[in-house]
Design a binder for these strands. Structure first.
Lengths: 212, 212
DNA sequence: TGTACATCAGTGAACGCGCGTTCACTGATGTAC
DNA sequence: TGTACATCAGTGAACGCGCGTTCACTGATGTAC
């Protein structure tokens, strides 16, 4: 884990594991997660089809690593979005939700594999912990908004799940092209804001941006 | 299209198209939609692997028909749920949402294929119209609740999408085993109620069951 | 009621394909002395 | 600085497999007269 892609065409690749993950993302982006094959991934990485076995035991291993990476990136994205509003916990909560939806669009391939458990090693410990990290960000943001009195402190788990379901559903509907009209990235961002506003704003006890 | 499975082992099956759809549901239920194959479906239906081509042009054709059937059943389920509350449009709206979630659980195989557009003929006209039917039920239920003053009449489309996203996301999270703790059917139904209540109830102008 | 014939529905062999995995191998790298 | 050797990382041939699709066929069904 020393050199990072300086001697590109060397026999020893230097960073093949990451290159394979990148190639997998590319393949998923082009043909969807259903059509992805280990051989195609190796081909894209410019390496023989036997090589991936060295870094990931098998196909499920590679896809599990990819899903894990996706979950970690998502939780970073969410944390960053939340941190953009350090003095307004309600806005921070909403921004976290919007960031979730935008992640699904901008990192579509990651998002696709992350929620296809059939293709992964479900027992993988790293995957599990990465998976719960992003939920934790959401939960923290919700708790903060509750503490500040923006959101009722009752039934926290249900509210967390509801919030998650809302943004997750929006992302999935977009991803499967099931939104009534096909939306552009900008339209979807607007829609995401309206949607989280309708959800979180309408339940604000002090209603800062409420029903404006 | 006359006899319905009376001469079961006849050379001419009588209702092979439906039998194949049923076999496909069974296969998806057992191994997931990613692993489904035309030959396995034919095997389950007790028919040679060339037979499906007679009724559905190819694999995508069969899966498209299955998705279409799923959408039709979903819209029937939603209509029925809504009709259970003819004199309370807010309750009818909520019940429609809960029914959506329960459909995903009880007709899991259908639900899986319905939202995997990669495997379908996306241009199919019947599929498209079946697909919009269930959204229409939701929209009608929302409009009724708006007319009765339970829900703000502003921004109807956003509210419809938000409602849909909420129940869809809950269903998807359950389906991909991503809910914080694994939930049983009964727990999920309770959760669905709490979630739609939080969403629809909190925005009720007259607040019948509001914040109780 | 009976016969001829067209149409329909399913068969099973054949095709070519790309897949995931295994494995003996070899070239490159790093370490000990 | 140089040499021997162990370890690491990728190769490429081979395996067996199940897949989707096509197609000439045949058995069953329905219709016309």
């Amino acid at each position: 884990v020393t050199s990072t892609s300086n001697s590109r065409k060397a026999y020893h690749h230097g960073d093949l594991a990451n290159a394979l993950l990148g190639a997998a993302l590319e393949a998923i982006g082009e043909h969807g997660v259903a059509a992805v094959s280990l051989r195609d991934i190796a081909r894209r990485a410019g390496v023989s089809h036997g090589a991936p076995a060295h870094h990931f035991k098998d196909k499920a291993g590679l896809l599990t690593a990819l899903a894990t990476q996706g979950h970690l990136r998502l939780s970073e994205t969410l944390s960053r979005a939340r941190a953009n509003h350090p003095d307004d916990s309600l806005e921070a909560f909403k921004a976290t939700g919007v960031a979730y939806v935008m992640f699904a669009i901008e990192q579509r391939a990651h998002f696709e594999i992350m929620f296809q458990p059939e293709l992964q090693n479900r027992a993988d410990a790293e995957l599990a912990s990465a998976g719960s990290a992003s939920y934790q960000v959401l939960l923290d943001a919700l708790n903060a908004a509750q503490s500040d009195g923006f959101i009722s402190a009752q039934d926290t788990e249900s509210q967390a799940i509801a919030a998650w379901a809302l943004v997750h559903g929006l992302a999935q509907l977009w991803q499967s092209s099931n939104l009534p009209e096909h939306k552009s990235r900008a339209e979807l961002e607007q829609l995401a804001w309206r949607v989280v506003h309708a959800f979180a704003g309408a339940r604000g006890l002090h209603g800062r941006t409420h029903d404006r």
